[in-house]
């Protein structure tokens, strides 16, 4: 039997001031469990980018994080507008972020590439008009 810790967060699609709470909480939990700083950093950054994307580009959603002795699995599921061309969205610099979001420091089009860089496995499933689910795994060992 695998020893698994599951954490679940609802991300509010309206509230920018709270975006980052899930990633901060996961970061604290992993630190407490003695996971290496490098892994903690990768998980926290990947999760924060995904969380912000759910606020900016979708209408919020649900984050589920599973921690096993071997890996951290993250699932970010939203019912937002979906991504039409995933390959394009994955390119560095591609962004559809509106101006008011750019003035907050987002919209470099580096979020998804960062998530890929920080995770050992990443998969995006998206249907236009239905929503997007991003799953990422970071290996601990």
């Amino acid at each position: 039997m695998e020893n698994t810790l599951t954490l679940r967060y609802e991300v509010d699609g309206e509230d920018f001031t709270r975006a980052g709470e899930a990633s901060a909480a996961v970061k604290r939990a992993l630190k407490k469990m003695g996971v290496s700083p490098e892994v903690v950093r990768k998980v926290a950054i990947a999760l924060y980018e995904g969380e912000i994307n759910m606020v900016i580009h979708a209408d919020g959603g649900v984050i589920t994080v599973e921690v096993t002795p071997k890996e951290v699995r993250m699932e970010l599921a939203d019912h937002g507008k979906g991504i039409e061309n995933i390959e394009l969205a994955m390119q560095e610099g591609y962004s559809t972020a509106p101006d008011e979001v750019r003035s907050l420091g987002f919209g470099a089009g580096m979020g998804l590439p960062n998530m890929k860089k920080c995770s050992d496995e990443m998969k995006i499933e998206s249907t236009v008009g239905v929503g997007t689910t991003v799953t990422m795994t970071v290996y601990i060992q």
Partner: peptide, 24 residues
Amino acid sequence: DLLSIVMSHAQADNVWITVMANVN
């Protein structure tokens, strides 16, 4: 100042200099 870029390059213990002053 662009946060995703900062997140991918800033290292722990760095001094981070920015004009971006908000919750993010």
